[in-house]
Design a protein around this nucleic acid. Structure first.
Lengths: 353, 353
DNA sequence: CTGAAAGCGCTTACAG
DNA sequence: CTGAAAGCGCTTACAG
């Protein structure tokens, strides 16, 4: 490796042995054209013989090539401010890696508009980034997109929800099933024998929304695993305006007098809180995500528990993992589950995202 | 940041603004002596103003300083070959990082000799490494050691078992409690109503062996959590020779005719398998670790299940985490739990460590 | 106390 | 098809 007795190493040593300049070595190292087959073979043989491992730090430093990492997440919508936190995480990572000549290209889609997602993926391919981070909200479209990434050898990582079977570099986000399971555990402590749960999936396109359903699965599994025979009234609400939600809740409560707790499987829980107020119903309310609307409702006593999974951290880690993989050739864990945090009025002030 | 309109950046820009050479900038950056207070202050102000962030890649490349990472693990003992795998993991990491001027100093202690552990820690302090990885087998001594590391600002990571409350950079290893819990789950499927378990902690110094006890806790918790009233006969065996183990097992089996399964909380399970053969008893046997002796017994049908936690990976990750933290200033997860793998005759061939 | 120069291991124009 | 030189952003002697 070292300097002892004037030994060369790396690209210089290869050049010396092959009787060429380091420029030529660099050409074959990167399969660039303009080297005669003969010297190319000779150099390749030496590279193999020395088991040459490039110094990646030096490589990045010298290279003028900028590395592009694309991020694709929903815009902050009127329904929920959830996605502002991942965006901040992305920007924090960006600040850290830009000095290594890495650009983070940020793309956004409308969570209620499949076409916008597809359009953004097309845009991304125009740039041909070196890595992609995305929230695969539209499963089929995301699958098509990541398939194409695989074909082009572009590494990608999922955040927030996973698509299994895709060849992703990593998934960074909640263990959805487990978080539903945990919620059920909480519920089982709270409810008496004769009281029941209302489970609400609120999304304009439930049919696709795998990740909400995975939470529901986990939720139900807890009661089965523990032989608890708990009645679960489940409603999928496909319109996220307050009026629709209110109607659905009112109907359920009228039909099921024993409901004492509502479990909302995503961040729309503050909307539910508002509805309950309107309906003048005081129920226990459990939902997801540490966002402004929800925290307010939590503080006001209208939400009892929030389950959170550091969405800012997820995005930060995703970009950093991509950087470490692409630039430093680091190994990245296939699954990076975030801790499942339970937030109440008592501890919310200490929660840092 | 960039080259546009001839702008400088980094250390050069600071030097230009302060009207000094980059050498002087470097001196104040690293608090080296030999700079007048006046210019030091001026440079510091500029650094702050520009919010200068050093290029760590360039820094490592230019520096002649070699970074020392010390590893402290048990020697491969006659009782078990377990520790040969972490050693291989260390060496794999070493091969990857040595080109960045990092040296991995390997220290070993005798698992049955507290003094040897303490002696090695003393040796380590003589070198004053930049980071330490250790298996904290002797809890009190390891605590004293890592306390001193904290004082000297030397980051350290635990593998294999954790000491909570120490200010470690990371713990990389099994979730001991959960792995015991999982074992109990397995057991609950296997045993009938009227059959019972023999739990064996085999170690020459049980009194300290926090990590075995944590597995036992998890194991017991499963039955409590699931309201299963299962009889557990527990024996701590403080001599690891086959004769002692055989005597203890024979005694337990005579006293408890309903024992049909033995759960060994560490890698000594193959010794138990030998004893059972000698005693001509055919019981179900569950234990830990993917090591040669155990695999042989597994293949021969003398062990039924092995619980494994990729010990090679643990050590590899530990060294790499230290490298990424020290050199690249990366954030490292405080807890890095390894997957809990269940190995049987059927799948052991596909298990890669 | 300070500066100028060389060099870390690479890549990138440029010249031939 | 190939080489010589400059440079990435730092650190390290060395000279004064």
């Amino acid at each position: 490796m070292a300097k002892k007795d004037g030994q060369l190493s790396g690209v210089k040593e290869i050049a010396r042995r092959a009787n060429v300049s380091i420029g030529t070595v660099d050409r074959v190292l990167h399969n660039r054209a303009g080297v005669s087959p003969k010297t190319r073979d000779k150099i390749k043989a030496i590279i193999k013989e020395l088991d040459y491992q490039p110094n990646l730090l030096a490589r990045r430093l010298a290279s003028k090539k900028v590395i592009h990492i694309a991020t694709l997440i929903p815009t902050v919508s009127k329904d929920t401010s959830f996605w502002s936190q991942p965006l901040q995480g992305i920007m924090r990572a960006e600040a850290e890696v830009q000095k290594y000549n890495i650009k983070v290209d940020k793309y956004f889609f409308d969570q209620d508009d499949k076409t916008s997602f597809v359009n953004q993926t097309k845009k991304i391919f125009r740039v041909k980034p070196d890595g992609v981070m995305l929230s695969p909200d539209f499963v089929d479209e995301a699958t098509a997109f990541t398939n194409k990434c695989s074909k082009l050898d572009i590494p990608f990582v999922f955040i927030d929800s996973d698509i299994e079977g895709q060849n992703s570099l990593s998934y960074i986000g909640p263990h959805l099933y487990d978080s539903g399971y945990l919620a059920a555990n909480l519920v089982s402590y709270i409810l008496r024998e004769n009281e029941s749960v209302l489970l609400l999936n609120i999304s304009q396109r439930m049919y696709k929304h795998h990740h909400l359903l995975r939470k529901e699965e986990g939720f139900r599994a807890y009661f089965i695993d523990n032989s608890l025979n708990k009645k679960i009234t489940k409603v999928d609400i496909k319109k996220s305006d307050r009026h629709s939600i209110e109607k659905e809740i009112a109907a359920s409560l009228t039909k099921n007098k024993d409901i004492r707790l509502i479990f909302v499987t995503n961040s729309r829980v503050s909307l539910v809180a508002q509805c309950l107020k309107k309906l003048k119903k005081k129920l226990i309310l459990i939902g997801y995500d540490f966002i402004e609307e929800n925290i307010k409702a939590l503080v006001d006593g209208d939400i009892d528990f929030l389950i959170c999974q550091k969405p800012g951290e997820q995005a930060y880690k995703a970009v950093m993992s991509l950087y470490q993989y692409i630039v430093l050739n680091a190994t990245v864990d296939r699954m990076q589950f975030m801790p499942i945090d339970i937030i109440t009025r008592e501890n919310y002030q200490f929660y840092k995202n």
